[in-house]
Design a binder for these strands. Structure first.
Lengths: 351, 351
DNA sequence: CTGAAAGCGCTTACAG
DNA sequence: CTGAAAGCGCTTACAG
């Protein structure tokens, strides 16, 4: 194939020979080092141009022991939530002359390990971890070869730098809004319980109920796995028996959309019959009718802050705080309304 | 920070010293080279374990002049279409012992150049290009340092390896279905005209119309940029004046969803009043009600084939064909119906 | 079975 | 202003 023809890859020494200088000089020209005579510089530049020379980045990185490369480990690029996070990460990296490469784990622990391996092998200067399926014991045991910052997720370990919102408070807020609208039979669709975020959001839900004097019911808590399909299935479960919930609080938007679909498929109107609240504010939350009411995470900002924290660590700067908590925002759209009067009646029967 | 404490990174020579062997031997153990005495192997393994040694991948790659790393350049990870492509790519890479890292251009030509630069600098062994905003002249002028395969997109250049569907045929098929359902006033929402894919799909649309003896009307062609918002805006344009279309053929699903939203917001029913067809078959196409009828691309398969083609080139294997065309599929869901009788009447007036 | 030595392609003190 | 030389951390013929 024509692509194998690079066996004779051009090296710096080729440029040096052509320009009749040493490689040291070529290197200096490339680095923009000031003390090089204009004439020599010209010759070198010309030779580089003639030869279409590109420095070997592997060699450079090895020598400098810095690659100016950061890897971002994502659980699932399928999840639109991460798109904006990545945008923020990339912005902040570009500003400081770093490249970012994305590693997709597809929720596989092995892939996550493999990608973290890239950092053990010092192939990159730093890593952003936007997932943590890896048991936290493993994460703590690792002695990081390069700086690591967690975005969105966190581990309880004291010293892992993290940028995220307060998930518990955000969930509590959301459920309080439902309660304020008059709901009392509020169901919760959670994410996988192995993920701290899911536990936090469930926690917030429970806190809000208790604070309002509502006793949580097991039957009103359904577990999903973040996907649309799992939201759809969760709704089916929640409406299977017993007095049905009048509102659903979902741990992410995709599951909330799944719930809405199930409700529509079964002749229930949102929000007239059932209110639905999501979490994250992904683009698709405004693609449906009615548009989804949700808790917005400042995604781009999380990305920017996480990257800038990481690069501070990479560059050995002084970092004031290792944990950054960003504010969430209530996006009041079309899926929350007061419960129907008859639902309220039922409720007073129960009370 | 604790993270800077790696100044004294463990090298192979440390392992060698501790195991009382040469680095050559350590390297052999690591490589699983057979002719090493069991005893020596044990000592080396123990030393590696004790020291928590990880080989420096930069050094290894430099020496071997192969990194076992492939970079995938994506226009926009926001686009769910690419998620499944990536899944296929990763599967095929993993099978053959390669890592894949994702590079997101965010539709920026500069970012695309930068990422291609990574290949000039031989940081990776190969590259998959799932976008090509770069003018094709540039792409052809480049003498690739490492193999490159295009996925989905293509350039007319004869010799760039490509895996994709036949976009023109797929679009023609879709529009023929609408015609078969009785539609004659069919609008088209295109992607950006700089992108070949958009031009191909528009071409297919025009071919289908002409083959049915329908004269294309400029006013029924609206240009979008792949986003939901642009689909929404396109619908507004198409229904602004003149006899309204009875069906919309959209160059991707996200724009189709935007059109559906506009129609719903304006009291028009899909598909009773207007039929809508998308392209790609992204997950969200089944999140809405009714579910979107669309043209499915075999995304995972495109990914797998593209990667396996790339790795064949990387490994210098013989490659039978440089261009692979995969079949598309018509996903008949809920957004296509015959036009209303009155719409048909209007039409005969025009005919 | 094992080691000494060269070399992958750069960069960077150290001289001059 | 410029070059000779050492070295980043590996791997791999070449000897023995």
């Amino acid at each position: 194939m024509q692509y194998r023809g690079d066996s004779g890859s051009i090296r710096m020494s080729d440029v040096a020979r052509r320009a009749r200088v040493s490689t040291a000089t070529v290197s200096r020209v490339l680095a923009g080092y000031p003390h090089v005579s204009t004439e020599t510089r010209q010759r070198v530049l010309q030779a580089i141009e003639d030869l279409q020379y590109h420095p070997n980045r592997l060699a450079r990185s090895l020598r400098r022991s810095a690659s100016k490369l950061v890897v971002v480990i994502l659980p699932d690029i399928t999840n639109p939530f991460f798109s904006e996070i990545v945008k923020g990460l990339e912005e902040a990296a570009a500003e400081r002359g770093f490249h970012v490469l994305l590693g997709n784990t597809g929720n596989s622990v092995e892939r996550e390990q493999e990608l973290l391996g890239l950092t053990d092998e010092r192939f990159v200067d730093g890593v952003i971890l936007a997932t943590a399926r890896l048991p936290r014991s493993v994460l703590q045991r690792r002695k990081p070869r390069v700086p690591l910052v967690m975005a969105c997720e966190y581990v309880d370990a004291d010293e892992v730098p993290t940028v995220a919102i307060d998930n518990r408070a955000a969930a509590r807020d959301a459920v309080e809004r439902l309660i304020a609208a008059g709901h009392r039979r509020i169901a919760c669709v959670t994410g996988p319980m192995e993920v701290v975020l899911s536990r936090d959001r469930l926690q917030g839900y429970l806190e809000a109920l208790r604070a309002a004097g509502i006793t949580p019911e097991d039957r009103l808590i359904a577990r999903g796995d973040w996907t649309f399909a799992s939201g759809y299935a969760a709704a089916a479960t929640l409406f299977a028996y017993g007095p049905p919930p009048t509102a659903l609080f979902c741990s992410n938007d995709e599951m909330a959309l799944g719930c809405m679909k199930w409700l529509q498929d079964h002749g229930l109107h949102v929000p007239a019959d059932v209110s639905v609240v999501g979490f994250d504010d992904i683009p698709a939350s405004t693609w449906v009718t009615p548009e989804l009411t949700t808790v917005r995470q400042p995604k781009a900002e999380i990305g920017r802050r996480a990257m800038s924290l990481l690069l501070d660590l990479v560059e050995g700067r002084d970092v004031p705080r290792l944990r950054v908590v960003l504010p969430h925002e209530w996006m009041d759209r079309g899926t929350v309304a007061p419960p129907r009067a008859d639902a309220a009646d039922e409720m007073s029967d129960m009370g």
